[in-house]
Design a protein around this nucleic acid. Structure first.
Lengths: 197, 197
DNA sequence: TTGTAAAAATGACCGCGGTCAATAAAAGAG
DNA sequence: CTCTTTTATTGACCGCGGTCATTTTTACAA
């Protein structure tokens, strides 16, 4: 008979996440070292890896959490009324991911995970994002603001593709460059969703 | 007075690449360990890192080389006559990259590098691929087989985006799945290049 | 040939993510 | 309160990529 996870364990997990978040706050994602996390949380290294599969597993929770918060912001803005407004809704997400390559790499690694364990926050985030995009695209199609010759699911996945493409390029160049990801995304979405004439 | 790189050094570099390629042949890219490479090449570890910036730098040469060979194949096929034929030309590339996540990750890291040092094989490969795609798209536009309302450069970059998207998803799922990347790419390219009516 | 400065190669060493057999702490059973 | 079983934690240890002060080799001048 398997038992439910005990209270003490949950507290440890919470403390690990809390300390990790604090370090990220101070040093950024790239500055996060497992040894620092466990030191601050006052546990041994092995403990961390009994709570999270690996360092990425820990990051996935932190980042997934943030993605969910960004989604709240997106939804709060209400349904966009055209392609340009949709781009604007995506801007915060791009800004967040664009701030550190670690975020990008991790999201990319999980971005295709449509199935999988629902307790993984990051997966939940993706499912919600795709669902939200699809819903919005349906509305835009109904309003005749974007093309209607393709199913909204395909268009949504296409948007994901352009999002990642733009970010990938962003991380390859020196950032003195003045074009932020959100701005670079525009021409792609305009072309991809081009309004029905 | 700086001197040109000496013969002996070039031989060492060549031997390192040769041995690395052999190991990849046997164990795949994921199985490549720096220690094995230097052991086979009969040099110390530090030597490898004086020839290549890091492990990725070594892989970049190996993979970039392979990408160039694939490009030869693409060009040998001649210019495609419609979107479907273009997809077919890209299939070998997808098959190659899809065989190991290491290849994908590395190509993605370099994929935005449009400028940079021309002696990097992998950069050369990308420039050539983009140029080739652009040229083909121009021809297809001229022939009226694809949309003409967007510059071929934008369409080419879009294709890159879909390529990476499809591959990203591919690596996220169990590979018992029967849909290979090339097949998954089709609907995107059809939609993205949708023929002028 | 010999002296010397640049180039090339060396390998001990480090950082850091991740493992695992051993140990401690909790949770019932009697 | 014991004894036993499950759960949670520990920290020494490992693998592997990457560094750097030191040593060896090479090229060239006197």
């Amino acid at each position: 008979m398997t038992r439910a996870p005990q209270k003490r364990r949950l507290e440890t997990r919470a403390r690990l996440l809390e300390m990790a978040a604090a370090i990220v706050q101070e040093q950024g994602y790239s500055g996060l070292r497992v040894e620092d996390v466990v030191a601050r949380a006052g546990v041994a290294k092995g403990t961390l890896f009994s709570h999270f599969k690996d360092k990425d597993g820990l990051l996935a929770v932190l980042i997934g959490d943030e993605v969910l918060r960004l989604l709240d912001g997106m939804e709060a803005g209400g349904a966009p009324r055209d392609a340009a407004e949709l781009t604007a809704r995506l801007a915060p997400h791009l800004d967040y991911v664009g701030q550190d390559r670690v975020i990008f790499d991790l999201l990319l690694r999980y971005s295709g995970t449509t199935a999988a364990e629902p307790d993984e926050v990051i997966t939940a985030g993706f499912l919600r994002q795709v669902a939200l995009l699809t819903r919005w695209l349906q509305l835009l199609q109904a309003a005749g603001r974007i093309r209607r010759d393709q199913p909204p699911e395909l268009l949504a996945e296409g948007i994901q593709a352009f999002l990642n493409h733009v970010l990938g390029v962003w991380f390859c160049m020196e950032h003195d460059d003045e074009t932020p990801p959100a701005r670079a995304l525009e021409p792609y979405l305009q072309a991809w969703l081009q309004p029905a004439t």
